[in-house]
Amino acid sequence: MAGTQLEPSSSDPMTAAHVDTAEVPSAAWGWSGEAPKTFRFFGWFFAAFLLTMIIGNHTGRVEDWWLVGSAALLVVILVRDIVIRRKPR
């Protein structure tokens, strides 16, 4: 009787960390974190990708300004993130 109380049954979910699923809904299916290195990589990737999209078959300059502006906004956000991470707390 005591052995069954100590061992979880196969139908009970096992929790590795004590995270309230009301606060973090993704903890219910086993992931409740972020991937900051991945997000930063894709931020730089898409900034470069937007700039390479300038090369194309369009004739107007409005598209170029939107692409450069969007890439510049991404770069500003990424540089701000680098500065914030380097400041001591």
Rank of each mutant, 00 (worst) to 15 (best):
G60A: 15
T52S: 15
F49C: 07
W65T: 01
I55A: 08
V19R: 11
G56I: 01
D81N: 09
I77A: 11
I84Y: 11
F49S: 10
V76I: 15
V24L: 07
K87S: 08
S9V: 00
F46Q: 06
R85Q: 12
G30W: 06
T4M: 14
A47K: 08
I84C: 05
E23H: 10
I77S: 08
V62Y: 04
F39H: 09
W29D: 05
R40Q: 15
W31Q: 11
V19P: 01
P88N: 05
R86V: 04
L67P: 02
T59A: 07
A28F: 02
W65S: 10
P8Y: 01
W65M: 11
A28S: 15
L50A: 10
G69K: 00
A16P: 01
R80V: 06
G33N: 02
L73Y: 11
F45L: 09
S11H: 06
H58M: 05
G30P: 03
G69Y: 06
R61Y: 08
R80K: 07
D81Y: 07
S26R: 12
G60W: 08
M14H: 03
S9E: 08
V83E: 10
R80H: 07
E7P: 00
M14R: 13
S9F: 09
G43D: 01
A16M: 08
R80D: 12
A47G: 01
M14G: 09
